[in-house]
Design a binder for these strands. Structure first.
Length: 840
RNA sequence: GGGCGCUUAGCUCAGUUGGUUAGAGCAUCUGCCUUACAAGCAGAGGGUCUGGGGUUCGAGUCCCUAAGCGCCCACCA
């Protein structure tokens, strides 16, 4: 028998291991229709956070539901090598050991990185297990696996041969800490206090100067022109002349270019083509020299005279001091502006001229935009609005910088010999070829995840059967990084969308609404939550708390209340199990149903219908609310109470059994542990585990009208309210004013017998609801109608007036749908009758 | 600058294609140890749905508009 209290620790012990050993999570039943989800691979950098718990819980609910619905459900697990993030962590660890990672042999370093990966992958496995995720580990993948690496090379080589990958010298976002290029998506813009330095650039051979305003005076070493707008009346006559570059004392031309905004600042811009993306474009138009003035670590290089070797920020100070001394500094205007920072290392990104590999995005993005117009082949976002985010990105996207100056990742399959470049799956024959030292952006391999995990480019059974994936679940924050890229790569290489549905959830925030982050220290470890409330509570809370796509404010009180809900289910089960202990399978029957049996079976049927409908639409909050209401209100508060008066009846037992086992199945995708625990204690069952049982289906046999019992319940409530408001204790009498079936009402109110009048009372009151009317006899000191009665009369009167007015309105009766108007008339009639009865 | 979201009970959130008197959990108040559960039960109170305008017989829901909060994208010499 069950303990009186739900103990999540006991319940969640050992079950996962059994499920895994039994192979419940393994896909491959070819007789069934496949349903696939591929997990968003977590980074092997560390622990899973609450966001992962949310993301994976949603997926587990979907996949368990589909599995129970009879699909060959594959949920493929895997992890991401997470290039820059992992490399930074491994480097830090090495530094802590006193080792300079960049002085290590590359292969030695990689050994350390793989050791790190193994360690953290185990952590993640443990956490997945605690969460109870039904992953098919036989198909687990890692982005650096041989197969996936092959897929990466294949894609690189093909895109290169198609002219969609190229190598070029461009201004890229440079992370001086990690010393690597970054993509635009890896740059976070933050408001930073800075200044406009107004500097005099003297016009060659004159005493006149141009007032140039810049936020980055230290880059003047790389200036190769000064631009004014060609339409600018103030300066256009100067175009073609030269200015003397301060400190450097070099002549540079004044050019006319539309990049110079007449309205902004002084209208004069210094042009530094090697250190600013806009200036780079200007440089291309005017054929300007590109002078790189920094080293990869963002210190100034040898072109910067005595400033060489200085950090860029120190250099700025020194240059400003020097300009001031030379009388070239006009003004320092303090401003706040947006400056790019590296997503991973948080250092200020340096726009930097360097040779990198790029994916030419335009044709790939256009293909996505085209495909999204086709209802049958598009990626369906849930909620729909997130499609706009992808489409917008596709519209404005520009070439993707994919090379990273890191060690941890897929080596770029390009080899160089002098000026020759070879791109191929394997190293070219012949002597003297040197492979590109760089690796690919992590997201390059992630972009292939939906099919590279299924053996692509090998045309295997896996790929054939499980691709496209049915569903992808992820947060809206990684649509640009990942969803978009999977979509264009999927389309380009398989000719199909990578997944049919893309279910988007929000971010987890703290109680104040702030994003959870390491720096704020407001993060919550899902393992701590599981320790305290159990995985079932955490899962149910996360999955059902908010509607789709919304952020979730983490609130521990809600977990406590979810725990209470499970405890309620636990105790209801305890009651049922106690009552059906002796129920034999062969006795089980749903014949000879009493009215309350029909009522609960019908309510169950509705719940099944709702939950299925909501789950099919990925509306987990609605599914949760539906289950919660059914379990607590319909089953516990009403049916169980009613059943206590016919507990020896084999039909009652059968109904209790039927409803409980249905509840366990319905809730199993959300709460796999507790449902399993209780299911295992049923006297007989369809399957050895609820995990592999069949998800309940609606049954037209159970479509009974629930009105009668609903009305009785309303009557019971009215009666109780009356008693409470009039402080009536146990001493009162009742008289039945109207004939009818009062059995349930009597039982629930414990007023057994048709008539109880123990003695004379000085007061009485009719409690009436719809077809039921009971006179309550009691002692009362003061006179007059009871509050309950007054309230009901007032309620009825106002409602009747409202309905009369509504029905008198011709616009309403002529334009509103007939069934709604009829229902209105019907209700009016009922209320009028009730009022008449009350007033006697 | 462009776009998106949010604003509903004290708090956290639901609210299907417009259709009774807007719901839930927590919190509050009242009464209960009623043998499944006091982490519970039975009740109660609490909302001019951010403001303004419009469409409609009818608006929390659709349209316009204003405000506050949050996010995304772009620009910022």
């Amino acid at each position: 028998m069950l303990e009186t209290k739900y103990d999540h620790k006991k319940v969640e012990e050992n079950k996962y291991k059994t499920w895994k050993e039994k192979g419940y999570f393994n896909a491959g039943d070819m007789s069934k229709k496949p349903f696939t989800i591929v997990i968003p691979p977590p980074n092997v950098t560390g622990k899973l956070h609450l966001g992962h718990a949310w993301d994976t819980s949603i997926q587990d609910v979907i996949i368990r539901y589909k599995r129970m619905c009879g699909y060959d459900a594959l949920w493929l697990p895997g992890m991401d090598h997470a290039g820059i993030a992992t490399q930074a962590k491994v480097d830090r660890k090495l530094k802590d050991e006193g080792i300079n990672p960049r002085e290590m042999d590359r292969d030695e370093w990689l050994k350390r990185a793989w050791a790190w990966k193994d360690e953290y992958a185990e952590n993640i496995h443990d956490q997945w297990a605690k969460l109870g995720l039904s992953l098919d580990y036989t198909k687990e993948r890692f982005t650096l696996d041989d197969g996936l690496s092959r897929a990466v090379r294949e894609v690189f080589v093909k895109l290169y041969n198609e002219g969609l990958i190229y190598r070029g010298e461009r201004i890229i976002n440079w992370d001086p800490e990690a010393k690597t290029a970054l993509s635009n998506e890896e740059v976070i813009y933050k408001d930073v206090k800075g200044a406009f330095y107004h500097i005099k650039y003297f016009i060659e051979g004159t005493d006149e100067f141009l007032e140039v305003a810049t936020t980055r005076p230290e880059t003047l070493f790389g200036d190769t022109a000064v631009a004014v707008n060609p339409e600018d009346e103030r300066y256009k006559h100067l175009i073609g002349k030269n200015v003397i570059l301060p400190i450097v004392e070099k002549k540079i031309p004044i050019i006319g270019d539309e990049h110079a905004d007449m309205e902004f600042g002084t209208g004069i811009v210094k042009i530094t083509p090697a250190h600013d993306p806009n200036d780079f474009e200007v440089g291309v138009r005017h054929n300007l020299e590109r002078v790189v003035i920094m080293n990869p670590d963002a210190t100034m290089n040898e072109l910067c005279k005595e400033y060489a070797g200085m950090d860029r920020f120190t250099c700025r100070e020194k240059v400003v001091e020097r300009l001031e001394k030379d009388g070239l500094l006009i003004e320092i205007e303090e401003i706040t502006h947006n400056v790019g920072h590296s997503e991973r290392t948080d250092v200020m990104v340096e726009p930097y001229l360097s040779k990198q590999w790029f994916v030419k995005m335009r044709p790939l993005a256009d293909a996505v935009l085209e495909n999204q117009k086709n209802k049958d082949t598009k990626v369906n976002f849930v909620p729909e609005r997130f499609e706009k985010i992808m489409n917008h990105w596709m519209e404005i996207t520009y070439d993707w910088c994919i090379s990273r100056q890191l060690w941890w990742g897929h080596r770029i399959p390009a080899w160089y010999k002098g000026d020759e470049v070879y791109v191929g799956m394997e190293a070219p024959d012949g002597e003297g070829w040197i492979q590109d030292a760089d690796v690919l952006d992590t997201w390059f391999s992630s972009a292939l995840w939906p099919f590279s995990t299924l053996d692509w480019p090998i045309k295997s059974e896996l790929l054939d059967r499980y691709y496209p994936n049915d569903c992808l679940v992820t947060g809206y924050d990684i649509i640009p990084f990942w969803v978009n890229r999977m979509t264009f790569q999927g389309l380009h290489f398989t000719g199909k969308r990578p997944f049919k549905d893309c279910v988007i959830h929000g971010l987890i925030r703290d109680k104040q609404g702030r994003k959870m982050s390491k720096s704020l220290g407001n993060g919550v470890d899902p393992m701590d939550v599981i320790e305290k409330y159990g995985a079932d509570a955490l899962r149910y809370y996360l999955v059902t708390e908010v509607s789709g796509g919304m952020d979730l404010k983490y609130d521990e009180e809600k977990l406590a209340s979810t725990w209470n809900f499970i405890n309620k289910l636990w105790n209801a089960s305890r009651f049922v199990l106690m009552n059906i202990e002796d129920l034999k399978e062969e006795e089980y029957t749903l014949e000879n149903l009493k009215i309350e049996d029909k009522w609960i079976l019908s309510k169950l049927d509705h719940t099944i219908k709702d939950v299925r409908r909501y789950l099919d639409k990925y509306e987990f909050n609605n599914a949760g609310a539906s289950l919660y209401g059914f379990i607590w209100e319909c089953f516990c508060d009403n049916y169980i109470e009613m059943s206590k008066f016919s507990s020896d009846d084999v039909t009652t037992k059968s109904v209790l059994y039927h409803v409980l086992s249905s509840i366990l199945k319905l809730i199993s995708p959300f709460m796999p542990y507790v449902s399993e625990e209780i299911y295992s204690m049923l006297p007989f069952k369809d399957e050895e585990s609820v995990t592999i049982s069949k998800y309940p289906e609606t049954d037209s046999k159970n479509e009974y009208s629930t009105n009668t019992v609903d009305d009785m319940i309303e009557f019971i409530k009215t009666f109780r309210t009356f008693k409470l408001e009039n402080k009536i204790g146990k001493d009162f009498g009742v008289k039945y004013n109207v004939d009818g079936d009062y059995r349930l009402i009597q039982n629930m109110l414990r007023i057994g017998g048709n008539e109880i009048i123990n003695r004379e009372y000085n007061s009485s009151h009719d409690v009436i609801y719809k077809d039921y009317s009971i006179k309550v006899l009691y002692d009362k000191d003061d006179e007059g109608d009871s509050e309950t009665l007054k309230k009901r009369i007032a309620e009825l009167k106002s409602s009747i007036t409202r309905r009369q007015n509504l029905l008198a309105n011709e616009g309403y009766t002529s334009k509103a749908p007939k069934n709604i108007v009829d229902a209105e008339r019907e209700k009016l009639k009922e209320e009028e009758e009730e009022l008449k009865r009350i007033k006697g």
